[in-house]
Amino acid sequence: MVEPRDRRNPYLIPRLYIEGIKGDEYLVESGEGVYKRSKSCPSGSRCYGKAIYGVELDSILDLLEKKVKRSFIVEPGDKPGEGILVESGVHAEPIPVSGKRAVIEVLEGDEVKEGDVLGLIVTGKYELRKVRSHVDGIVVYIYSSPMGPPDENIVFIVPRDQVKRIKIEE
Rank of each mutant, 00 (worst) to 15 (best):
V2H: 09
V2M: 05
E3L: 14
R8Q: 12
P14Y: 09
E19V: 03
I21W: 03
K22M: 14
G23H: 03
E25M: 15
L27S: 00
S30K: 13
G31D: 07
V34C: 07
Y35S: 08
K36A: 13
R37L: 15
S43F: 11
R46M: 10
C47Q: 04
C47N: 02
Y48C: 09
Y53I: 06
V55W: 00
V55Y: 03
K67L: 12
V68E: 09
K69P: 07
K69H: 08
F72K: 06
I73C: 04
E87K: 13
I95T: 10
P96Q: 06
V97H: 02
G109V: 09
D110V: 07
E111W: 05
E114P: 00
G119T: 06
G119A: 07
L120E: 11
G124I: 10
G124V: 05
G124K: 09
S133A: 13
V135C: 09
D136R: 14
G137M: 08
I138N: 05
V139C: 04
Y141E: 09
I142G: 06
S144V: 02
P146N: 00
M147D: 01
P149F: 02
E152Q: 12
N153S: 08
V155A: 08
I157R: 01
R160K: 15
Q162C: 01
V163Y: 08
R165W: 12
K167G: 04
K167C: 04
